Amino acid sequence: MSTKPPSLTERRKAATQLDIARAAAELFTEHGPDGTTAEDIALRAGVALRTFYRYFRSKQDAVAPLLAGGADRWRQSLAAAGPGSAVPTALERSIAEALSAHDEEAAEGLRWTRGLLRAAAEDPALRAVWYRVNQESEERLRAVVADLAGPGADPLDVRLTAAAATDAIRVALEAWAETDAPVRGEGAPAELAVRCLRELMGGMRLLGPAPGE
């Protein structure tokens, strides 16, 4: 099913939100959430404070687009595998690709995520944004998994698969953020997420054997 491309207004809105999110991430990394105000974020992003509050309810909420962007691209990549694809293989490949940091822009995105997760350890409101982003991603992922699995898939298996895949990425990123491991290679997010995925989905009927078995 085709989707209508975003309008120019929608693209501008998304770009402004991302600019604000990056400004918030920079300031949280530099000064921590407690040392950052909404006014600081608006000034760094080059927007009026009223513009900030038009898009975000709080300073912590401002980083949501940055945290959600990677998940959006991952789901699009997974959906591109198309119906009839082997679900475990498609999931593993898409997760490895999404977290592979194949260019400097992707590597920088992972570093921003690391900084935000470290800041979230001391800020309940920022943690709540992280959990909300993951929950929303999981809910959107169900439709993608259902399309890949086909009309005969058990809805509970689809739901479990979406939860397991989302948690594999979440746990991998959280574990990686607690270390100084690189963005690529051993101990990097891609390796950790694939490991988590295999562990979490080992017994699911929908998926069958895990890749490599």
Rank of each mutant, 00 (worst) to 15 (best):
K4C: 12
P5V: 05
S7Q: 10
L8H: 08
L8R: 14
T9S: 13
T9H: 14
E10F: 00
E10V: 01
R12G: 09
K13F: 00
A14V: 01
A15I: 01
A15C: 07
Q17L: 00
A23G: 02
A24T: 03
A24I: 00
F28T: 09
T29W: 10
E30G: 01
H31A: 04
T37Q: 02
T37E: 01
A42C: 02
R44H: 11
A45V: 04
L49Q: 08
L49C: 02
R50V: 09
R54H: 15
Y55S: 00
S58H: 00
S58Q: 08
K59M: 02
K59V: 07
Q60M: 07
Q60I: 00
Q60C: 14
V63E: 00
A64N: 03
P65K: 04
L66A: 03
G69Y: 01
R73N: 14
W74L: 15
W74G: 05
R75I: 06
R75M: 13
S77V: 04
A80T: 11
S85Y: 02
A86M: 04
V87I: 09
V87M: 04
T89H: 05
A90S: 13
S94P: 10
A96Y: 06
A96M: 15
L99N: 04
S100T: 08
D103I: 08
E105W: 03
W112S: 06
W112P: 02
W112V: 04
L116K: 09
A121T: 01
E122M: 01
P124Y: 06
A125S: 09
R127E: 06
V133H: 06
N134H: 14
S137Q: 15
S137L: 11
R140E: 15
A153K: 01
D154L: 07
D157R: 04
V158Q: 04
R159N: 15
L160Q: 07
A162H: 09
A164I: 06
A164D: 11
A164Y: 04
A165F: 14
A168M: 10
R170V: 13
L173E: 05
E174G: 11
A177Q: 05
A177L: 03
A177E: 08
T179L: 12
D180R: 09
A181G: 09
E186M: 09
P189V: 12
P189N: 15
P189S: 11
A190Q: 14
E191W: 10
L192H: 12
L192V: 10
A193C: 13
C196I: 09
G202V: 13
G203I: 14
L207P: 13
G208D: 13
P209L: 03
E213H: 14
E213V: 02
